[in-house]
Design a protein around this nucleic acid. Sequence first.
RNA 1: GGCGGCGUACCCAAGUGGUUAAGGGAGCAGUCUGCAAAACUGCGAUUCACCGGUUCGAAUCCGGUCGCCGCCUCCA
Length: 489
Amino acid sequence: MPLKIYNTLTREKESFVPLESGKVKMYVCGVTVYDSCHVGHARAAVVFDCVYRFLRSLGLEVKYVRNFTDIDDKIIKRVQELKVNYRTLTEKYIQEYLDEMRLLNVLDPTLQPRATEHIQDMIQMIEDLIEKKYAYAVGGDVYFEVSKFSGYGKLSRRSLDEMKASRISPDERKLHPEDFALWKSAKPNEPSWPSPWGEGRPGWHIECSSMGVKHLGDSFDIHGGGSDLIFPHHENEIAQSECSTGKPFSRYWIHNEMIMIDHTKMSKSLGNVFVLRELMKECPAQVIRFFIISKHYRSPMDFSLEALKEAAQAFERIEMAMARAQEYMNGSWESFKNGTFLEALEGSNELIQFKEALEDDFNTPKSLGILFQVLGELNQALDRKAKRDRVSTLYRSAGWMLDLLGLNPDLKRFRKIKEALPFEEEKVRSLLNEALWKDEDVEYLVKAREHARHQKLWALADQIREAFKERGFGIQDEKDGAKVLRRNG
RNA sequence: GGCGGCGUACCCAAGUGGUUAAGGGAGCAGUCUGCAAAACUGCGAUUCACCGGUUCGAAUCCGGUCGCCGCCUCCA
């Protein structure tokens, strides 16, 4: 089955055929670095990370570019409010973003260019557009003349007539109200770069055209971003790029839908955002990732702490099963990997189904359904002490699925304590009064409880278990020793 | 107003023309356990917002009604 992608440009699911066989060139709009990211930014990053991972696992060589917008009006506004150097500000949020991406297990794109590193490229493209009469300079500003591009509106399905009717308070110096800025002249004390039109900065849209074309070529395969970028950002990118190069820009446009709070879009202006780094203090990043991929990327998704709690519960099921299998097999799933995903597919019905789910426009929720079926079988096999071969097959399949979805279960949460430790009731009593336990205290108490159970001192055993619970640990008694697990949050 | 989308069990969520409508959470019952926890087993939508139509057959296609949302200004 070929990979099908829903293309915003055609509004249809299409078979994906890259321009150059075996290679994919993909550009995704990153973030504007003027403030901390929220869950919506995480969704976009995770969605395209899944796309990236899946394309790679199909054996395609993917060049993936995701930019940082590190100069724009919002950044300037923030810089003036905070009275800091704009590079200090942007650098801070770039680092924050990179840290968060790492925690979310989002792979580094091939390139992460910054707008300010491409000012010259942008100036060249603007000059080119002026020369070709698609753009005009007025004072220190340059505008793109939208009516010169017959394809304008093809992505967002809008006509110029509609736009003329709806545009509000147009800049007087524009020839037409719907024209947009390619270059903006600098006011005093604003960050600026020299240009043929004087000191200034690039308009927002030109950076993506310029960096896309520079790093991926005039025409490339996939362009992604949030659905709120379709108009005007992506529409304008198409106009600039195609007028400049004379060639079709991106061939497939992928847009992820928004995160909603109480059925309303999460956005800064409404003040209903959940800041990612705050959320990560309460909840493991992997749970956030799991939450995100549990809904198809093209549907709006309601976010709430309750929903996140449900996701945490479901994710723990994954972690428990994988931890059990790891213990049984005495090794991480990677150590049983042998070969690539495509090779692992051979004869593995569940992996084939899993692949088919993702091939259908990256249907991650459907793929999770298949993962859970495999985990159910894995648990069954483990319950019945099935042969190593059977367990190993299921374990490996589940591992591949988690790998492709970029889910990284935290198996260190589960610890089986095996070594014997001397039991001293006094020490146990004193530890029970401690508010915080070190690792060795945890181990000691697990063994102490085991001792108490062997002596049928049920009251003491239950007291210890209760103390564990109060400190965020769960205990599971198993035939060959107790297992302790650290609860999330 | 223009363009686009959504409405599936208590909650989340796949399924978009054809065997019993995936999966997860929560709940209830059973197995296991000193009691738990986890795991396993069983139970749970004769029905897919509503009303018509097309079809041998529709949650799935078409028309209408109701409700909700996004974009059209900065936005992932």
